[in-house]
Amino acid sequence: MTGSQVPYLLRAARGETLDRPPVWMMRQAGRYMKAYRDLREKYPSFRERSEIPEVAIEISLQPWKAFQPDGVILFSDIVTPLPGLGIDMDIAEGKGPIIADPIRTQAQVDQLRSLEPEESLPFIKPILKALREEVGNQSTVLGFVGAPWTLAAYVVEGKGSKTYSVIKNLAFSDPAVLHQLLSKFADAIATYARYQIDCGAQVVQLFDSWAGQLSPQDYDTFALPYQQRVFRQVKATHPDTPLILLVSGSAGLLERMAKSGADILTIDWTVDMADARQRLGSEIGVQGNVDPGVLFGSKDFIRDRVLDTIRKAGNRRHILNLGHGILPNTPEENAAYFFEIGKQADQLLAVHA
């Protein structure tokens, strides 16, 4: 591919200096879109929506058709590969993953299977293949996986949590069992990420959503080594595929996240983008930073906040995004405006300098 044929987001992720940042949104296919809500009535189960290829393809492409983002992400969930490991799960509407039999003992860890994605995740290949065919070189297809600590948090707690007391109990009273679980998850996630790339994903994002619930020293023990293990394995076979890391509430962890092996770090809104850039240096890419709540503001407010982030991030190794997923009640026209501002950023920055 020539430079002009390489999708814009991929060029940014590889370190090219560009006139404007590529722009996409986390959870850009979802409840804020009427098209998604209409489809959800027909397919009420999240697993149906994400595991029936034609439905997942349609949902993944809804924002593409509406906004033409620079990134189109697979519609799925981080817990999707768990049944392939022998972990029964469901995803409850509005509540998130539910694990039928939480894993808390050595015997349960020993029973986990190795992941064979072609067998247990047969829907992934047709979805990613179709997305690549649909967007061509006009957008970058993103895959994503859950990080070992965050998957373990769901699997040990049995569901989402506000305190993470069950997994912390295991971490601090029987760490050997948790480390074995994290090791198995790291290898399975690396296998799954590589499989997504083989099926068509051009960039993969690792969600360690709940690693921000750890103290810095516990992050170094239970999160970072397993992020590194995933990224190391993926880079060994797919060295040219950019990898993104997200940790929610990560303002105090940026320097630690930079040691993960990720090419790009998602920055949330609890740290100023200029500070993040200063702390991370020029060789680590940055993504995000705009508070999803900004999209409830006026158009002038949205424009000013988006341009502020772009100005502070600079024109190299920056992907414009929200600091987390778009919120369910966000006005659709404000989401459209976010993309519009991102795509006109070079002209707007000149005017609003």
Rank of each mutant, 00 (worst) to 15 (best):
A171K: 00
S215L: 14
L206A: 02
Y226R: 00
S250I: 08
G158D: 13
R229A: 14
Q278N: 11
E283K: 14
Q233W: 02
F172K: 08
D220H: 05
I267C: 07
M257P: 08
D275E: 15
D218N: 15
Q233I: 02
K235S: 10
A171Q: 07
N169D: 15
Q196H: 08
N169S: 13
A171G: 12
M273V: 11
V156F: 00
V177A: 05
S209R: 02
V290A: 03
D240H: 11
D268E: 13
I267L: 11
L265R: 02
P239W: 01
T237Q: 14
A201G: 14
L265E: 00
W149R: 02
N169M: 13
L151Q: 04
Q202N: 10
I264D: 00
S260D: 12
R256G: 05
L245S: 06
Q233N: 10
V271F: 07
Y192I: 03
G158E: 12
V230A: 01
N289I: 11
A186Q: 02
E283A: 10
G158F: 06
A258Y: 08
L280D: 05
A176R: 14
P216D: 09
R194F: 01
C199W: 03
A223V: 07
H238N: 13
G285H: 11
N169R: 12
G249D: 09
Y219E: 04
A171W: 03
A193R: 07
V203W: 09
T241G: 05
V271T: 14
K159D: 07
G288F: 06
N169P: 00
P292F: 03
A262E: 13
F222Y: 15
V234D: 02
L206G: 00
R256Q: 15
D263T: 11
E283Y: 10
T221R: 15
D187G: 08
V247P: 02
A188E: 01
E283S: 14
P239N: 10
L178S: 14
F207A: 07
F222T: 03
L243G: 01
Q233L: 13
K184D: 01
I167A: 00
P175N: 11
A176T: 14
Q228N: 05
I197S: 06
R232I: 04
A262P: 12
Q196R: 08
Q202E: 15
S250R: 09
A186P: 04
S282C: 07
A193L: 10
S173D: 12
P225F: 10
L151A: 04
G212L: 02
N289F: 04
Q227W: 01
E255K: 15
Q196Y: 05
D218M: 11
I244D: 06
I189C: 08
R256M: 04
R279G: 09
G200F: 09
D272F: 03
Q228D: 06
L245Q: 03
T266A: 13
R229N: 10
A188R: 05
D218L: 05
F185M: 08
T241M: 01
L214R: 04
K259M: 15
T270D: 12
C199L: 09
S248W: 05
A152V: 07
A193C: 08
L170F: 02
P242S: 10
T270Q: 14
G212V: 00
Q180M: 12
D291E: 10
A274T: 07
Q287S: 12
D187F: 05
S165T: 12
V204F: 07
Q287L: 14
V234H: 02
Q227M: 15
V290G: 03
G158A: 05
S161D: 11
